[in-house]
Design a protein around this nucleic acid. Structure first.
Lengths: 211, 211
DNA sequence: CCGGGAATCTCACGACCCGTCAGATTATTC
DNA sequence: GAATAATCTGACGGGTCGTGAGATTCCCGG
């Protein structure tokens, strides 16, 4: 993955690594304040106190910088995904579902601007972004699919459901809710309600149980 | 809504309306082939065989043209939303859910590129796009919320669920699944599976029944 | 502590798109 | 078919893009 090297392949010394990191951070900042379409290489450079030409030493374009940020973000999903490693039996199951939903919301709160670009680019067919998305979401999707399959074998989940499809549906729900809960909240729903309800839907879809 | 007028407010004659329509269609086409970030006003104009200055007579920028397209697309959701007007009892309920999911997928297949921009812009805080999204999704969300509330009163849906949150979760699931099913299909899930599974999750969340 | 080679940064440039006029072209009216 | 209104466009200043050649900074051996 993001092997630390300049665009021409040369490995980076200490100074260069610092510059690259500052460029990444500036990209992140500008992404949050302006939308992706208004992030200018010139301004990223300006913010770092360097010149555009420097930017192009490390990244082919703005997207490539965002790709690195998306790749870094993927790591933050790991602890969330591990909430699915234990079966969701009994009372603890619903708690785990709540923690997962809440964790997912937090993850998006931290990486919202980057995730948006990742999803846009992936949806528009950019394979680099598809890969990083698959790698990120896969951590959750695969585990949900496995749990659904387990519960299906135990007769709790309908055999007419496809485990992987259900997992994709749940991740879709999570992603979109996490992405847009702050558009809902001003309209009279609290975050707590959103988390609780989403967690219950998730819990039931995965386990087939009523808590 | 999209009152047909030029940027300076003057109403449009026949020729002007044609030009505007051709510009909208060209915008739609370019949106599909290139991503939003590569849609150049120059090229929209070129495709219509006119000059950039003409484009700016009708739209302040590319976004505004896409906004009109998103507004037009909203109408196509109406028949889908009406599938929620009858309560989802018995066997017909699951069929209605299937039709809704399938309809939603088709809707996205027709308007994918426009919907992507709508969601991006809305997520990035653009109020015009938020409005059109709320107007579009609201048709479905409000009806789902009402159904959930009905079934909740009848004791089939847990009182710990907030109807509006559940509706938002279901619409989120639908949107994202519709938006990215074609990224899943190459990975070994058929569209039929996705529709069936999504429909069952939707059906259960709305009605609280096992079909 | 200093010179020299490697690493890193920047200046300056041609190409292109943006958005806006004033003026040219086309349609409509009488 | 002439006058008037509606519509379109040429041309321009201002900005970003991405690049290569050259300037600057770093760092090591002596």
């Amino acid at each position: 993955m993001s092997q630390i090297a300049a665009i021409d392949g040369r490995p980076l010394g200490r100074r260069a690594q610092q510059t690259r990191r500052r460029l990444l951070d500036a990209t992140y900042d500008l992404l949050q304040s302006h939308g992706i379409r208004d992030v200018r290489v010139v301004e990223v450079a300006r913010q770092v106190g360097t010149s555009p030409a420097t930017f192009y030493q490390y990244f082919r374009d703005v997207d490539e910088a965002v790709l690195v940020l998306a790749d870094e973000a993927a790591a933050d999903v790991e602890p969330i995904a591990h909430l699915l490693d234990e079966p969701w039996n009994g009372k603890g199951g619903l708690d785990a579902a709540r923690a997962l939903v809440d964790g997912y919301f937090r993850f998006w709160d931290d990486h919202r601007a980057v995730m948006r670009v990742r999803n846009l680019a992936a949806d528009e067919g950019d394979d680099r972004f598809r890969d990083v998305r698959n790698r990120t979401l896969g951590q959750v999707t695969d585990r949900i699919a496995r749990s659904v399959a387990d519960n299906q074998r135990a007769g709790r989940v309908s055999p007419d459901i496809t485990p992987y499809s259900a997992a994709a549906a749940m991740v879709s729900m999570l992603e979109r809710m996490a992405s847009y809960h702050f558009d809902l909240e001003p309209r009279g729903v609290t975050r707590a309600d959103l988390v609780e309800t989403t967690a219950r839907i998730l819990h039931h879809t995965v386990t087939g149980r009523k808590p």
